[in-house]
Write a protein that binds this DNA or RNA. Structure first.
Lengths: 210, 210, 210, 210
DNA sequence: CATGAATGAGTTTTCATTCAT
DNA sequence: GATGAATGAAAACTCATTCAT
């Protein structure tokens, strides 16, 4: 389950990194517009600023491009998220910070994230687990943050509930991208975030608690 | 925004219906396995039990198959859901029934639903709005059921919150299919349903309300 | 080199004749619009007023339709021409009458004639000679009429010249159909006929003969 | 009404020219044999000496091949004709030279010309006018040459007559190709030319002039 | 006789990938 | 390393023809 190795004919690691970044940007632009399958390798090469021959100096197959894109998007989401939540806050505050940060990142990267979630299923069988692992890792962070809030009178929640809540939060983040067609008419990001947090952490409903 | 007309060279309406049902079943089976783009029209024809020539007697293009599949899945979800929630129950009971029913239907039809949500984006531009309309309609039903629960001491919720909660419920239904790879390890459908309802309708968290 | 036999599954000769007439009319209409190759047998059947199955009760293959069309057009041209030139006139008057009649028939049947000349080359190898025979026969009539004008002081013309003049007249007739795009801007049928006759039979140029 | 642009994926203009020449030769050979519609793109590629994939690097669609063929044949006819008539001759001599040259070119290029005249009608709507323009241009040259002969006692002819005579000459040129099946039995090219010139420019008929 | 659904070989076109320069 | 022309397998779609009803 380690990072998939994308083959390249080129030795210079610096160059590989540079070219692949160009490639990923070009590919995202195109995938956004027409999806992975309707985008040709020729188009990716052109959009990336080099020739089809060069493209294949840095990848082994078209699927590698998709893998690089998915990997890159996850990495970027992760990096941005980490930088936002790297604070001293603890407990509920930290959990709220994580949620807010997640939604913010999803909003900033909505096109990239949408592309990624819509196309992961086209990844080759061997690459999927590696990508899913990142999803699992992020979910685990949230789950931990939830569990760290558990305290009588603050958050009473079972392990299973914590797990599911973590999944829910992840999905609410993604949902902001894939259900945008409906949500954007009714909510700003701030409204969306506030209401979701309120619903997640209580306050909406009250009768059962008495 | 009306039902898209899929052209057919065959006159017998009964036969059209029958053949298209075969076709939809065949297509779902294949889309499940390899996705829409990796499935060829020949494969669809073969899986459906007829020749490629016959396939094209009942559709105008490959995209029509996708449209028929999406339309059919929505219709089926809707029919099943309607039959499950067509009861006398009202208020919170009715809302819980709707949620439970939705999740049950999603569970029963997980493959079909997954296929549909993953491939809608490949629908031709003109067909998408029609399909989204169905999603909107289902969300609206849930939203109404939520609003019908509003009562001091039972459910205090603003219009916006109700709208978002409806979306959340729809997404939690879909999530049971597209996040199955993670959820199935931790939850049975019953557990999933119970916890989600509990989280949606309160009881998990309590301190803030005081 | 006899009339090609077009096979039919039907016995009733009367019916065969009737159906084929429908078929020929339908086919000409379509060939006019889109040419033989771009017209499908299904379209021919529909335009003719019956089903594709019925079409094949009266022909053996699509090429037979083309043959029937070509044959029919020639027959019609011939019939009309014969009826127009069946008079007592002789000599130059008769020749002029033939030319005028030919051009008139070509004008009346321009679409049919154009279709025929454009598509004969698609006839199956065996059918072509039979159709060409009709062309030869018509040319021969003209050639004879030319020769019948030969008389010192009236028309002095060698055999070879007479032959070529006959071909020229045939082609001038066809030309009125296939070069219509250019001629219709400059000439009415009457003008066209008058000038062509004048040019064919002298009067345009004169000085060299003295 | 300008030269239609045929799209190519290849950049090297030299190479495009070369490949298209191969393609045109291959296509003419095949169209000659079986016509445009019965010739497949695969056959064209093979006959041209490259693969089907390569063929489509140099054209956008099968119709483009037809356009290239028609364009090329006209260009070639025009070039050859121009080189033959580029002399000092004037008046009747020049007209006779043009006619003789036209017939010679038609004879040399009979297959190509025949193919072109039989298939122009299959050109896409937008391409036809451009090709017809070339036909018009050639006719105009002849018309001018005719008018340049006008002189009392040499050639007395009205404008309309000159126009029609020009069309006649063009058609007599084409006729040598499309009526070859009949003419070749009776005439050599020289005979054909001599008699046609005699008939066009007088001497065959005489009675009216007295 | 008439019908029209079924067939599948054949057609155009695309596009990932290779490799000589 | 970079280029882009060449390749051909594979895909969508067509349509003449058949044959059971």
């Amino acid at each position: 389950m380690k990072k998939k190795k994308v083959p390249s004919m080129v030795k210079d690691q610096q160059l590989i990194k540079h070219r692949r970044e160009q490639m990923i940007q070009g590919a995202i632009t195109l995938f956004k517009e027409k999806g992975y399958h309707r985008t040709t390798t020729r188009e990716i090469a052109k959009e990336s600023g080099f020739s089809i021959g060069t493209l294949y100096e840095y990848i082994g197959s078209k699927e590698d491009v998709l893998y690089l894109v998915c990997d890159s998007v996850y990495e970027e989401v992760r990096t941005r998220l980490d930088s936002l939540i790297d604070t001293e806050s603890v407990g509920l505050d930290r959990l709220k910070l994580i949620i807010t940060s997640l939604f913010n990142v999803m909003d900033e990267m909505q096109d990239e994230v949408l592309v990624m979630y819509q196309e992961v299923k086209s990844l080759p069988k061997e690459a999927l687990p590696y990508v899913l692992k990142k999803e699992v890792a992020m979910t685990a962070i949230i789950e931990q943050a939830i569990k760290d809030c558990r305290e009588p009178g603050v958050l009473t929640i079972s392990d299973k509930e914590a797990t599911l809540m973590a999944h829910n939060i992840m999905v609410k983040g993604q949902m902001w991208t894939f259900r945008r067609w409906a949500l954007k008419h009714s909510f700003t990001l701030k409204e969306y975030t506030d209401i979701q947090i309120k619903m997640l952490l209580g306050g909406v409903v009250s009768e059962q608690m008495s």
